[in-house]
C-alpha cells in the first residue's frame, strides 16, 4: 500500500451532520492534513471554494440546501474561481446501485459508503490520487470518464487473477462508484 504524505493538501468536508464532520475532522488530523475546511451544506461549500479553493472535496450525499450531487454539478460547471476538476468523494449510507449511478452521473470521482472507517477514507483518497480519470465534456455531461476500468477492489480477489470486473452489483465494485460498463459517457 502506498503511503502518501497528505500534509500539503487542503480538504473540504461538507456534511450537515456535525458528528460526521467531527469524525472526518479527526481522521484528517491523524492523516496530518494541514488545512481542513468545513461546510454544513453545498451552498456553504461553494462559497468556501469560491473564496479559498480546496484540493479535494468530501461531501455528504443528502443535505439541504444544495446536496452533494448538486454541489458536484455546480463544481463541474466551473463558475467563478471554482476549479471544475476538483476531485469529489461523496459519502453516503445510500449504497443502492441507482444512488451510486446518480453520483457518477453528477460527476463524482469516488463513492464512500457509510458507516465509514479511517481505512476506507484513505482508500478512497488513494484511489483519487493514483487513478485520476480523464474528463469527458459532452452535451449533457461534464465530469470524470464514467467508463472506468482501473478499479482497486478492496478485500480478497474472490474471482482469481484473471477475473474481469463487470456490472453484477457486487458491493466491492459498487463502493468504488464504478459501473464497470461502457455505456456511460
Amino acid at each position: 500500500m502506498a503511503e502518501y504524505d497528505l500534509s500539503n493538501l487542503s480538504i473540504l468536508i461538507v456534511d450537515d451532520s456535525a458528528p460526521m464532520r467531527s469524525i472526518l475532522r479527526s481522521v484528517m488530523r491523524e492523516f496530518s492534513v494541514s488545512r481542513t475546511l468545513e461546510a454544513a451544506n453545498g451552498r456553504q461549500a461553494l462559497d468556501i471554494l469560491e473564496k479559498s479553493g480546496a484540493d479535494l472535496v468530501i461531501a455528504d450525499y443528502q443535505m439541504a440546501p444544495v446536496d452533494g450531487l448538486e454541489l458536484t454539478k455546480a463544481i463541474r460547471m466551473g463558475s467563478g474561481r471554482i476549479d471544475p476538476y476538483i476531485p469529489v468523494i461523496v459519502v453516503s449510507a445510500y449504497t443502492e446501485t441507482h444512488y451510486i449511478f446518480a453520483a457518477r452521473d453528477a460527476g463524482v470521482n469516488e463513492f464512500l459508503a457509510k458507516p465509514i472507517s479511517a481505512n476506507h477514507v484513505y482508500f478512497r483518497i488513494r484511489s483519487v490520487i493514483e487513478h485520476p480519470r480523464p474528463f469527458v465534456q459532452a452535451k449533457e455531461f461534464f465530469g470524470p470518464d464514467r467508463r472506468r476500468r482501473d478499479v482497486i477492489i478492496e478485500g480478497p480477489n474472490r474471482r482469481g487473477d484473471n477475473a474481469e470486473a463487470h456490472d453484477d452489483g457486487e458491493r466491492g465494485e459498487m463502493q468504488n462508484g464504478d459501473s464497470g460498463n461502457d455505456a456511460g459517457s
Binding site: R76, P84, P134, F135, V136, Q137, K139, F142, D145
Partner: peptide, 12 residues
C-alpha cells in the same frame, strides 16, 4: 463549463 456537441476528452 461550456457544452460541446461532440464529446471531448480532457486530461486535467
Amino acid at each position: 463549463m461550456a457544452e460541446s456537441e461532440t464529446p471531448r476528452i480532457i486530461t486535467p
